[in-house]
């Protein structure tokens, strides 16, 4: 009887420690996610300034500028931190904005006046600084998600996770367009 109680006590302790570790991992992901949001907010604050300068020179890129404005609004809108799908959508939109901003930066090359504009140069430098921070925040987030997902999906963690309602979280993945291999021949025609 004593042995059984001892065994049961041990199981309870181990389960509790496992639960604690799962919750810590989930909180680490949330912390990393808030780190991403801080950086995304910085970028969102920077985008209007860049667009304001760009609008003066870039007559032929109106649709791109409109798209960026719309995406910025979507990215800055709130989302449910407990909903994995909402997080995935939010991160997806952030990556789309990143992609469009990348396109804008490439287009700037076609406008020498804009390229040499002092305010634009400064804005672009700050933007690339923020991009570096976003990239760092993404690495932290993905590392935290990887640890959480492993803990949630591997038995017996999966049982404790389902009891504690801890779910797998989505990775912050690079945009599909930036993952596609580049065909150099397209540029050498």
């Amino acid at each position: 009887m004593e042995g059984l109680l001892l065994g049961l006590g041990l199981v309870v302790i181990i389960t509790y420690l496992w639960y604690v570790s799962l919750i810590k991992k989930r909180n680490a992901v949330r912390e990393a996610l808030s780190g991403i949001d801080v950086q995304l907010k910085k970028r969102a604050n920077l985008v209007p300034n860049i667009l304001k300068i760009a609008q003066k020179f870039m007559d032929h890129e109106k649709s791109l500028l409109t798209e960026i404005t719309a995406l910025r609004t979507q990215v800055t809108a709130g989302y449910d931190l407990n909903d994995a799908d909402a997080i995935k959508e939010h991160l997806g939109l952030a990556e789309q904005l990143n992609n469009k901003m990348g396109q804008l930066m490439v287009s700037v090359e076609n406008y020498p006046e804009l390229k040499s504009d002092k305010t634009m140069v400064q804005a672009m430098t700050t933007y690339s600084e923020v991009e570096e921070h976003i990239s760092a925040a993404r690495r932290f987030y993905n590392a935290a998600v990887s640890e959480l997902n492993n803990a949630v999906e591997i038995f017996p963690g999966s049982i404790i996770a389902s009891m504690a309602k801890v779910k797998v979280m989505p990775f912050y993945e690079a945009d599909e367009a930036s993952k596609t291999p580049i065909d150099a021949s397209d540029y050498l025609k």
Binding site: A32, G35, Q39, E132, H133, S135, A136, A137, R139, F140
Partner: peptide, 10 residues
């Protein structure tokens, strides 16, 4: 700072 560490250590 976890994010800053990754920002510095690319």
């Amino acid at each position: 700072d976890q994010i800053e560490a990754r920002y510095l250590l690319t």
